[in-house]
Simulated assay, not measured.
Amino acid sequence: MKKEQIQENGMDRRGFLKRTALAGAALCIVPALEKVNAAEKVISDRQKSLNTGMPSLAALHDTRTLGSGKAAFQVSVMGFGCMGLNHNRSWHPDRKQEIALIHEAVERGVTLFDTAESYGYHVNEKLVGEALKGYTDRVFVSSKFGHKFVNGVQVRTEENSTPQNIRQVCENSLRNLGVETLGIFYQHRIDPNTPIEVVAETCGELIKEGKILHWGMCEVNVNTIRSAHKVCPVTVIQSEYHFMHHSVEENGVLALCEELGIGFVPYSPLNRGFLGGMINEYTQFDPKNDNRQTLPRFQPDTIRANYRIVEVLNAFGRTRGITPAQVALAWLINKRPFIVPIPGTTKLSHLEENLRAADIRFTPEEMQELEAAVAAIPVVGSRYDALQESKIQK
């Protein structure tokens, strides 16, 4: 139902969501299906128009379900991480080009876009909001709360997930993005001073109020997930996960997601671009806008040592006609049916490359071969500095 039709019937979209929730229906099912169907139609129409014998453009053909039951959320098999459009990834194109890139992602079937208030305090949200204006009937946007800011400056030694701050960040995100409802609202990092049960209860209230469809958490352990899930069903966990960092396999988080029917969204699925093979020991990072220069794993000596892993991916992909980045993304998609990676890029060529990875299927034998080859090479250097690492639950 279009927004104008809803208003003619005497209530806006948020009011409609509230009434639906009070009636006991599953929030998001109807709008989610409408958006998925719209995206599928775009893909179908594009594919029909390309049946001319010419090579087709990359597009997403499949969807995946994050969460289960009333917390289920259907999205494209791959999302788009928006942070690097302006924050922590060195140089980037101008705003017009970045907006055009997001439009291209939408047209090629991406339905999940990931941002946060902290990606250049409100800057990334406003950019994404501008880019998705007119497309919000076809896509979902996820954002995050939990960092502490004072006068727009992040207090890096503290977090803030008090109910008051969660609600304030939610209102800011809705306004910045120009939407009435967030697809997913994540706790960015755990707040040791606010019980996770309080966080879950607050997010549950926001769901009932129609301000968010689903909620999730980033970089948390199995105990936190279980405690939160009992209060308000968690739709998705977002944590770093790729060939050079797979702690979620070792600490039980991935297995718990499978047990409880919770989706999993790996951020930095290409290890901040490294697994794409375009970074080497001579790469220069913008000192004013790139956190990689501060990370132990991105120093010249560690880059040199870890590049052996890229060569493994390159060797594996060469005989199959795929790139190292496609090997890394396809591995994640083949790993579990509830995994939806969110690679980011500022280049159309990389968007094309990433989306094609969604169509790649590996046999169990290929997965074992690939994992064994990577495991034989030790990863050198920590992924974060000590302060950032202290905020990750083990």
Rank of each mutant, 00 (worst) to 15 (best):
I342Q: 01
M54T: 13
Y135R: 14
H242D: 10
R175S: 15
K96W: 01
P378C: 11
A375S: 14
V42Y: 08
Q187L: 15
A255E: 14
A26R: 13
E125A: 07
D94M: 05
Q5L: 10
H61M: 08
I225K: 02
A376L: 05
R108Y: 11
Y282L: 11
A330E: 02
A325L: 10
R356E: 14
F285I: 12
F80K: 02
G204E: 06
N280D: 15
Q238G: 06
G53F: 06
P31F: 00
G344D: 07
C203T: 06
G152A: 15
D359E: 15
V30E: 11
G15N: 04
V123K: 13
P266V: 04
E104S: 12
V253D: 05
Y186F: 14
T319D: 11
S90W: 04
A23C: 08
E180M: 09
L213K: 01
R138K: 15
G109W: 00
Q47M: 12
M83T: 04
V153I: 14
T235V: 10
F274N: 01
G321M: 09
K70P: 10
G129Y: 02
R14W: 02
V30A: 10
P378T: 05
Y307M: 10
K133Q: 14
V231M: 09
S142L: 00
R14A: 09
A131E: 01
G276L: 06
E8V: 14
Q97W: 08
G79H: 05
P55C: 06
N124A: 11
A386K: 15
N176C: 14
P287I: 05
P93I: 13
I43H: 07
D286F: 08
E371C: 01
F243P: 00
N291K: 07
H245M: 11
K48S: 12
D62P: 02
V220F: 01
Q326W: 02
E34C: 05
W91L: 10
L275A: 10
D301H: 13
I360Y: 03
T302K: 12
G81F: 00
L313A: 04
P296S: 08
H92Y: 13
Q47D: 06
N291W: 14
N9A: 11
G81D: 00
G15D: 08
Q293T: 11
H103T: 07
C82N: 01
G67N: 06
D359M: 09
Y384E: 04
A58V: 04
R14K: 15
P337F: 05
E389D: 13
P163A: 08
A358R: 03
P192K: 12
H245P: 00
Q47Y: 09
A23P: 03
N221E: 10
N291H: 11
E171M: 06
G53H: 07
A39F: 07
V374C: 03
I339E: 06
H103R: 13
V106E: 00
S143M: 02
G152P: 03
A372R: 13
F316G: 01
I322D: 03
T157G: 10
N51P: 05
L387Y: 11
P364R: 02
P296W: 13
C203V: 08
L132E: 00
L101G: 06
